[in-house]
């Protein structure tokens, strides 16, 4: 089991970036911002020039300006904002269910050796089952409703959280655990003061991975099942041949993805302000 997680667990021990990065960080960070902006601008220019010169059929890849114009059109329609709200609602609901269920079950299963052994094979078997395999079942059960997409979202992100929490609970220092026991900490006190702080970095990793996966499955469900949201708008734009609009929506999903990643990272940073992996960065 630990093997399935080893690579994901953070911080990665052998080549974690150490204090070396600190040397001369300020001017280099400056350069990184500058170069990064240049990279984005270069990409936009290439995407503008390539279709305009006819290297790529502009019907398939409209120039950047056209995509941006379509995006500007879109954001002025109320249906866009309703769809964005739907997508975010499905995403956040699914993620919340997964995180709560994953943390509670992970802590319970992780703390009871019998449960851990008895569920290991089942978890290992169910986890790799692709959540999109459930699409037909979800459609039969709930049609195009939000529950159908939620099923996919929860199934996909739940395992991410659960597996991380299980790894986190197992990471509890045995000496600390024995100490807590000999001081007759109650189960709840042990969870609160020992298991939770140890597992929190893992929970945050699970949350970050789960958040990204949940967004993927939210959009997938909207595209394939027809649950209202950005993904559905995208599928409609494709069917009606509104190519620039389609690209604009792809850009929106990308921005949404970036926002989700940044949010998850910020949350991780905030929740783990006391953890060496975070404090090290600040101190350096």
């Amino acid at each position: 089991m630990s093997e399935g997680v080893a690579g994901v667990v953070e911080p990665a021990p052998p080549n974690a970036p150490g204090g070396y990065a600190a040397r001369g960080r300020r001017p280099l960070a400056h350069r990184a911002v500058w170069l990064g902006t240049a990279g984005v601008v270069a990409l936009l220019v290439v995407l503008q020039v390539v279709p305009s010169t006819g290297l790529v059929n502009p019907d398939y890849l409209p120039p950047t300006t056209e995509i941006l114009a379509a995006l500007a059109d879109r954001v002025q329609t109320p249906e866009f904002w309703v769809a964005l709200g739907d997508t975010l609602l499905t995403w956040v609901t699914g993620l919340a269910i997964s995180v709560v269920a994953g943390v509670v079950l992970g802590v319970v299963i992780g703390m009871v050796p019998f449960l851990r052994e008895a569920t290991a094979s089942t978890i290992e078997f169910l986890r790799p089952v692709p959540s999109v395999a459930l699409i037909p079942i979800a459609v039969l059960l709930w049609g195009t409703g939000m529950q159908a997409t939620l099923l996919l979202v929860v199934y996909a992100s739940f395992w991410q959280v659960l597996v991380q929490v299980l790894a986190g609970v197992q990471d509890v220092d045995p000496v600390a655990s024995d100490t807590a026991r000999s001081y007759r900490f109650s189960v709840l006190a042990r969870v609160r003061t020992l298991v939770w702080p140890t597992a929190l970095p893992y929970v945050m990793t699970g949350l970050r991975l789960g958040a990204a996966v949940a967004l993927i499955l939210t959009v997938t469900g909207e595209m394939l099942i027809g649950t209202p949201g950005i993904g559905k708008l995208l599928a409609v734009a494709r069917e009606s041949g509104a190519v620039p609009s389609m690209y604009a929506l792809v850009v929106v999903t990308g921005l949404l993805g970036v926002a989700v990643n940044l949010l998850a990272r910020a949350l991780e940073h905030r929740a783990l302000f006391w953890h060496p992996s975070v404090r090290g960065e600040v101190a350096a």
């Binding site: 993927i216 394939l224 990308g254 921005l255 993805g257 990643n261």
Partner: peptide, 9 residues
Amino acid sequence: FFRAIPPPV
């Protein structure tokens, strides 16, 4: 950015 785009789109 490219990584953040949900691949299904």
